[in-house]
Write a protein that binds this DNA or RNA. Structure first.
Length: 935
DNA sequence: GTCATCACG
DNA sequence: GACGTACGTGATGACC
């Protein structure tokens, strides 16, 4: 039935339901696996009571509307909007997706939209329904929605079972509904952090609005207010009041991706509803609903409390590659789509012709809906010989790509269906190129990373062996290695089915192991706020890439080659014979055997596992005082590095279509939470030497644009000052002092005015040493001073800043006791070696000291990156690269200043509201036509 | 494949 | 008292 006159729309405020359910019920957990389900249980009860209450009523259309994401246009208007909200409780977070599934199970339309508040969607729907001549009931008690009341729109407080109509609103606000926003704008709202006018509450606001008729009139004629204080407040805070009005005014023009007609009331499908309730193990409500629907209640087995996933525990159903389905026909695929809809989630894996998501082609898609139940949809497999006039033809038993994607797209894009995968950033990018915007997603690699960082790697094969006791089919066995390697499209379909479907099956099983653990290990927030939302952000940065000028690199490469040739000749002369300058082994023999150089400190020159002489830069630096050769070698090596790794190799990575270099970020690579950049690594482009820095001149902006670089200043030291609570350091940061000079001054008693570069340099080395878990030996080597002297520095440092020593002791003790350390945002980094004997323990101790600091810094910039796309959505700007404490953007030149201002705010406030640092976070900015100029 | 070296934060 | 040490990464060329 199309929505129109005589129709009655119910709009349920989903978030209100959830929070009410959460707070009304004790923290229940699901028996079988410990998953928290208290709020879901309450939510289902409320939905059931709602449905029962409306039987025989006149409701024709209904929807539950949810909030999604935290950033909306209101945050752009006012960055502190809802800023004092507490973070969501740890045990509620995993229940949120389940409330969506519950709604779907009741067969009630479930709607949410990224970047839009539920309130605005409700407002838009209410307006549309009113215009169509229908009636609306908003089920909520949120006063922010009261502005919508009137003209056939009422609210219903479900708890008190009280209808709020125009009179009800007038009772609450003292004005008619159409003036409610005016009152709210004046009175403000501490819950949503809407400022309003200081000292004015609802009562006074209503009085003023009734007297002047409207807020605009009031502000224009503020001079006429008799009370001097009130008058002054209104005149002084005019802008703030106007801003407040924009914040509280609901938007009736939200661009909805559905219509009122989609919300028609539907009967629940008993099987689906009871299936969901049984899965949640809700006995009472399952029984009640089964009786009501007149069907048999599914049996919920009494299970013992979840045993931890043991390595030796056999998998639920054996993994059998022969049992997977080869999907050839649309009808077959439609059945899988149906199965996915019933489940509410699916594990997915895409097979492609290569590893480069930018250029590879989609070959097939595998799906799994429950352990052992998986399929493979081959799409572009080929067989036959590569002939002179004919290429290989498509294999039999495949579906046309378009047809398969058309069937799959609705579930892949359905916000109520969770897509599970291993390293889904890859699949997300591939599918994106075929016009499929996959969401929402869960990534088993990142689940493992949040749970197990520091314990092991997070590749699928290793996870499968460890957690499922199963070694999956190796890709090598299908495509081979090296020169004879083939692409996946040439793998016979029958073989591909086993391999690909097994991957999806394994992924699903891993998800079932990891997902409940998230809550048990208390890393749900880490996963939900630092891992999952970062996936699409990184995907977009990688797709965007950065423009690299080939000619610049090429020219530099030629210049380097010339210089190297000249140096090589000189080196051979100094050595007395030609040799491979690039071979450390040959060099060692020349230096120590043929030239018989000895180390200035008298130590023996040997080192290294292979027994070869060490010829590292530090060694050559020491030898440079005795002979000319080592210095020439150092020069040659610098050029060789720049040429091979940068000016030459980088050119290979310029994408032929885009003219840009597209790195790949590994989100679960570094144990501390840092990202790693590969193929190519754009996080180690030279900067420290003048010659190396020139490489950055090849990283450029498109014509008319500039590159903008923003980097956190001394973020790790600031975090150290905060976590170790060092008042002297904190004060230095607050006062914007040169932190290394301030440290030196404190340590050596030198006044800041008399600071010398040498003393400052030493203090700087100590500051960094502290972050790394300092030792006398390490500092001595770094500063090239005797170890006793270095130890003296360290002792003095600890004396002056006793909090540092305490921090180190406490952190080490924590790691020994718990087996992990953590960042301020709750990220856990495991330290399995900390209690080992031997040198390993030393490494582990220093890593444990460093990890919370490096990791917290990594978390901060992750938070900034996650918020960035929405914050700069209205600007002609793109985020390109992350280099641990730096973000690089490309932006239209005339918008650079605006971008810097906006991005800086996001970065400096990134820790809030979860962590409120006691030192300021400072971000420095630069811009220019190349990375060299911007940095 | 492993090692040494060196680029970055 | 001896031991071996800065933290975290990735790419390259030499060598086995």
């Amino acid at each position: 039935m199309a929505f129109g006159k005589g129709c009655h729309l119910h709009l349920i405020d989903g978030s209100a339901f959830i929070f009410r359910a959460y707070h009304a019920l004790p923290p229940l957990t699901r028996k079988s696996d410990g998953m928290p389900i208290g709020a879901v249980s309450g939510f289902c009860n409320m939905l059931q009571r709602y449905v029962e209450g409306n039987e025989g009523g006149d409701v024709t259309h209904v929807a539950v509307i949810f909030d999604k994401g935290s950033h909306t246009f209101r945050n752009d208007l006012y960055d502190k909007y809802k800023a004092n909200r507490d973070e969501m409780p740890e045990d509620l977070r995993p229940q949120i997706p389940l409330t969506r599934r519950a709604t779907e199970a009741f067969n009630i339309a479930c709607k949410e939209m990224e970047h839009y508040e539920a309130d605005d969607m409700i407002a838009t729907l209410a307006c549309q329904a009113r215009e169509a001549g229908g009636r609306v009931t908003i089920i909520s008690s949120d006063k922010d929605l009261m502005q919508l009341v009137g003209d056939g729109v009422v609210m219903l407080d479900a708890m008190k079972n009280r209808v709020i109509d125009v009179e009800g609103v007038e009772e609450k606000f003292g004005v008619s509904p159409d003036r409610v926003v005016d009152v709210q704008a004046l009175a403000g709202d501490s819950v949503d952090n809407v400022p309003g006018a200081p000292g004015i509450g609802i009562k006074t606001a209503a009085l003023l609005i009734n007297e002047f008729g409207s807020l605009e009139e009031l502000l224009n004629r503020a001079e006429e207010i008799k009370q001097p204080k009130r008058r002054q407040t209104l005149i002084e805070h005019r802008e703030q009041i106007e801003l407040s009005k924009r914040l509280v005014q609901l938007d009736c023009d939200t661009p909805l991706d559905f219509t009122l007609d989609d919300l028609e009331v539907r009967d629940p499908d008993p099987e689906r509803l009871l299936g969901f309730l049984a899965e949640m193990e809700f006995r009472t409500i399952t029984k009640r609903i089964a009786e009501k629907l007149g069907v048999e209640a599914p049996i919920i087995e009494e299970t013992s409390p979840a045993a931890p996933a043991a390595q030796d525990e056999p998998p639920a159903a054996p993994i059998d590659p022969e049992a997977y389905e080869w999907v050839q026909e649309p009808g077959q695929l439609a059945k899988w789509v149906e199965a996915i809809r019933e489940r509410g989630y699916v594990a997915i894996d895409t097979e492609t012709t290569g590893l480069d998501e930018m250029t590879c082609d989609l070959v097939g898609i595998s799906l799994a809906v429950e352990p052992g139940v998986a399929c493979y949809v081959p799409l572009c497999h080929r067989d036959g010989e590569e002939g002179l006039f004919s290429g290989p033809g498509y294999s039999e038993g495949q579906m046309p790509l378009d047809e398969a994607l058309a069937l799959l797209r609705p579930v892949l894009e359905d916000p109520a269906i969770l897509k599970i995968g291993q390293n889904l950033k890859y699949d997300l990018k591939v599918l994106g190129r075929y016009g499929v915007a996959m969401a929402p997603i869960d990534d088993t690699m990142l689940l493992s990373y949040a749970l197990n960082a520091g314990l092991h790697n997070h590749g699928m094969d290793a996870l499968s062996e460890r957690y499922l006791g199963h070694r999956p089919i190796e890709i090598k066995s299908l495509i081979g290695t090296g020169k004879s390697q083939i692409t996946f499209d040439r793998v016979p379909v029958a073989e591909a089915v086993k391999y690909a479907a097994e991957d999806a099956d394994v992924t699903l099983r891993l998800w079932q192991v990891f997902k409940p653990q998230l809550h048990v290990k208390k890393v749900t927030t880490v996963y939900e706020t630092l891992e999952r939302p970062l996936i699409p952000v990184l995907a977009r940065m990688e797709e965007t890439g950065i423009k690299v000028d080939r000619d610049t690199l090429s020219r530099m490469s030629g210049a380097f080659a010339q210089k190297m040739a000249a140096l090589e000749e000189e080196i051979h002369g100094l050595a007395g014979r030609p040799f491979n300058v690039g071979s450390p082994k040959q060099l060692g023999e020349i230096l120590f055997d043929e030239l018989s150089l000895t180390m200035p400190d008298g130590k023996a020159p040997k080192k290294g596992k292979t027994g070869a002489y060490g010829t590292g830069a530090d060694v050559l630096e020491d030898l440079a005082t005795l002979h000319d050769l080592p210095r020439r070698i150092l020069d040659w090596r610098q050029l060789s590095k720049l040429k091979s790794t940068y000016t030459d190799a980088l050119q290979e990575h310029i994408n032929a279509d885009t003219g840009r270099v597209h790195t790949s970020y590994s989100q679960a690579g570094a144990n501390t939470g840092r990202l790693a950049s590969t193929e190519p690594n754009l996080q180690n482009i030279p900067v420290r030497t003048e010659e190396g820095r020139r490489i950055r001149e090849a990283f450029v902006a498109e014509p008319g644009k500039v590159l903008v670089s923003l980097d956190y200043s001394q973020i790790e030291l600031r975090i150290l000052a905060h976590v170790a609570d060092i008042e002297a350091l904190k004060a230095a940061f607050r006062e914007g002092q040169d932190i290394h000079a301030a440290t030196a001054s404190e340590m050596f008693g030198v006044p800041m005015e008399e600071m010398t570069p040498e003393i400052r340099r030493q203090a700087k080395a100590i500051n960094f040493g502290v972050i790394y878990g300092i030792s006398g030996f390490g500092l001595a080597r770094n500063l090239r001073i005797p170890q006793e002297e270095a130890q003296g520095f360290i002792d003095r440092y600890f004396e002056r800043f006793p909090g540092i020593k305490d921090y180190m002791t406490e952190t080490t003790a924590f790691a020994k006791k718990m087996g992990h350390v953590q960042t301020l945002f709750g990220r856990k980094i495991h330290t399995p070696e900390i209690n080992a004997k031997g040198p390993g323990a030393g490494f582990a101790r220093r890593a444990a000291i460093n990890a919370p600091i490096q990791g917290t810094a990594a978390d901060v910039i992750r938070r900034a990156m996650i918020r960035m796309p929405a914050a700069i959505a209205d600007m002609p700007a793109q985020m390109l690269l992350q280099v641990h404490d730096e973000l690089l953007f490309e932006v239209e030149a005339n918008a650079a200043d605006a971008l810097i201002k906006r991005a800086k705010e996001i970065m400096e406030g990134a820790a809030l509201p979860a962590v409120d640092f006691s030192v300021p976070m400072v971000v420095e900015a630069g811009s220019g036509e190349s990375w060299a100029a911007a940095h």
